[in-house]
Amino acid sequence: MEVAVIKVGVGNTASVLFALERLGARGVLTDDPARIAEAERVILPGVGAAAHAMQNLRAKGLDAALRAFPRPLLGICLGQQLLYERSAEGGAECLGLIPGEVEPIAARPDLPVPHMGWTAMQITQEHPLLEGVASGAYFYFVHSFACPLNAQTIATAEYGRPFSAVSAQRNVLGCQFHPERSGAIGARVLKNFLSLPC
């Protein structure tokens, strides 16, 4: 299976490609809208800051390609945030595939920001993406902004306050954690993503 991994800018996309490789899928790092349109799956990884990432996507016509993509699309970390309407990070207008605005995590003396580490996730709606994942399983998160809870939230995690750890809107999926760096349970989520019906 060919998975188009969107080249948004500079970042650790190699981890995503290696994770796909371990699952027997072929990840292709690309910023070509035609290649994306033909891909069986698309992953929008988390790289850089929201405003800058959106600027890069628009410059290459990738925003339109992502909005039009009819098969399963997974946004990871910043990639999930870009699926929302807006982000407070740089006042970015995002893809608008999921309603709501991404907010900063407020630092407190007891809560360093970025939220960096393994945090337990609670499943709030059953979904094939989370098949085989138990509520309370730990995933690896690294982020300074968070997606609000809404009707599209299928799992939550908490850092100061609850946020959307996984969201789903038809073929559009997002996870705030890094499945490619969340051990065996993260690999399970990626495997589920690859197994979703087109």
Partner: peptide, 26 residues
């Protein structure tokens, strides 16, 4: 590896940092 990986040692330019990330460091 399927858990986070950090690398250290002699990274003294943006280019080297990017190369580390592109070779799989988080």
């Amino acid at each position: 590896l399927d858990i986070p990986l950090a690398v250290a040692g002699g990274i003294r330019s943006l280019e080297q940092a990017i190369a580390c990330l592109e070779h799989g460091a988080d």
